[in-house]
Design a protein around this nucleic acid. Structure first.
Lengths: 335, 335
DNA sequence: CTGAAAGCGCTTACAG
DNA sequence: CTGAAAGCGCTTACAG
């Protein structure tokens, strides 16, 4: 049965009409006799006819497929984003093609050739390192693109982002309420806009309270578990005095908690700890980790919705869509 | 430029040859004058011509797209599997279409319609709950399918799995070497073949050592963090005596560790703990968790390789491909 | 309200 | 070694 799929010609023949007519009931275009329309509809159901995606795509010049380009699927929150994208895409009857960049240039070549082959109608992207200009080029050439801006790029094409600044400010506000005046900051790489925003938002809340952050209390990590451990160890070795930790992601926060505990610091009594992202591992840490929640799944869904709306005719907004990052309080600060 | 893509007709016209000839150099079929071939090749490069995937697909009756069907992208190891699949698929010039089942029947309807529309050439699947028969049907109807058998289905179509039995036996062997004679087992749902295999493998090692496991020391979880905590709490409340924990995944193992520690048990001195899967969270737990490693990424890659080989003409093996699950020893047992 | 015909951009016998 | 023509399975002016 699958070997001899039914085509529009088969349906037309059995209905005794032209392919044009069948095509019309399929697409609901043009006025047609309601009786024959009903008859054809029944026949379609009975024969289990589904138009070939390939043929429709060629005839219409569209694939009804959306692509997602991302650095790697190994990152902890990548699954969440993808889930947000895929649900929206599927619910509109589109397919989702996934491209990864783990094999460097070769990955990118493969992706580029699929772009040229017009394998999809639009693109949602989380920037693989160093590809922002390339993506901008695609956008300029007319490929509908929406960026999920996890790094604070603020590009000159449509994007979705979250309030890194406000989220960090909320974290600082929470620590201030708890009377913590000497927070240790375990930051990410400052080349990233999101890192600069988080640093600024955090500092702003302290400044408003009339406090200046001690520059010595800032250590830079790279978002990995190991770098979180390292930062905490350094802070201890250098004899830094701090009563809180604000890490730029959950993994570094958890790593720091472990090191501090191992050194005899009580959490949160001696050191209150806050992470960023609020992945499942935050709630499952010991003690459960207070964290700024990034709505990654919603960001994926929002990006997909914007892209699909564009494909349906709505112009893409040129200003980024901004979703709120909010604080989730747990025992690592209020135990 | 993207708005007026170059076609094979454009290349043929500029080269002063027929489309047939261009097609031949594209596909390397038939013998053709090496000089003209070279000239056309240069022209193709110069014009940046890439054949339309839609047109090629229609003409050849193939899409060069592979689909992956899975329950949800939220599961901790799903990203790893997908990564394994996507790398193989991309390296062969195929595209990967991802389908999810988070929206229940509607998701499945969407997927089914894409099957009927012949949107892809083959399928890699991690079984969404209750779809095994449906997938078997697809296979019978001629759709090339490979199952990544995470649950021990042992279906009657091609699959990839890991040695649950041997992995659990290795875990037990390790505990026996450490002199642990009363292991608490936090199992998964026994409806899953993988759970039964792990129980059997674990028991076998103890039996060989002349020891019978105390049935009271087995509690059932459902692979979630909460169920791991609950099992550990129950064990404590019931006053069960145990000197080790073997959990059927890492998350439950970590949850149990936290509860036991909270109750004053030292790990590993009082209780040695072993998980299953060996996700990043195992190495990042405190103490680092000994775990049976499931090669999920390799399983994804193996499934993709088998599928692509089949699409290229090699018959699919009817016996499952079996990858080894091995023990990674860390401080939760040997601290 | 309906159909014949051209076209989407390729591939593939077939003929020379 | 090369090309004309048919075909893949649809959609879409155009005509009636």
């Amino acid at each position: 049965m699958r070997l001899v799929p039914v085509t529009i010609a088969d349906v037309a023949a059995r209905a005794g009409v032209s392919k044009t007519t069948v095509s019309r009931v399929l697409n609901g275009k043009g006025e047609l006799d309601s009786a024959t329309a009903a008859r054809i509809r029944d026949l379609i159901a009975e024969m289990g006819y589904v138009p070939s995606a390939r043929a429709v795509g060629l005839a219409r010049g569209r694939t009804r497929i959306v692509a997602m380009l991302l650095p790697s699927l190994n990152w902890p929150w990548m699954g969440e984003v993808l889930q947000g994208v895929v649900e929206v895409v599927e619910s509109q009857g589109y397919g989702l093609l996934v491209f990864t960049c783990t094999r460097g240039d070769e990955s990118l070549r493969h992706f580029a050739s699929q772009v040229s082959a017009q394998s999809f109608d639009g693109l949602v992207v989380i920037e693989p390192d160093g590809t922002l200009d390339y993506i901008a080029t695609l956008h300029e050439q007319g490929l509908p693109v929406v960026l999920i801006d996890d790094r604070g790029h603020s590009p000159r094409f449509p994007s979705v982002r979250s309030t890194n600044h406000d989220g960090a400010r909320a974290a600082a506000g929470h620590l201030l309420e708890l009377g913590r005046r000497r927070p240790l900051i375990i930051a990410g790489d400052e080349r990233f806009g999101c890192v600069r925003e988080r640093l600024a938002g955090f500092a702003e809340a302290y400044a408003r309270a009339g406090l200046t952050l001690d520059a010595a209390l800032r250590l830079d990590g790279d978002f990995t578990y190991e770098s979180g451990r390292l930062a905490a160890r350094r802070a201890l070795e250098h004899g830094l005095e701090f009563d809180a930790v604000f890490a730029h992601n959950d993994v570094m926060a958890v790593a720091a908690m472990q090191v501090l505990r191992g050194a005899g610091r009580r959490i949160p009594e001696d050191v209150a700890v806050i992470g960023f992202d609020d992945l499942p591992l935050a709630a499952q840490a010991d003690p459960p980790l207070t964290a700024v929640r990034q709505p990654v799944r919603e960001m994926g869904a929002a990006a997909a919705r914007a892209l699909l709306a564009h494909l349906a005719g709505t112009p893409l907004p040129e200003t980024p869509a901004i979703l709120p990052a909010t604080l989730t309080v747990r025992a690592s600060t209020t135990g």
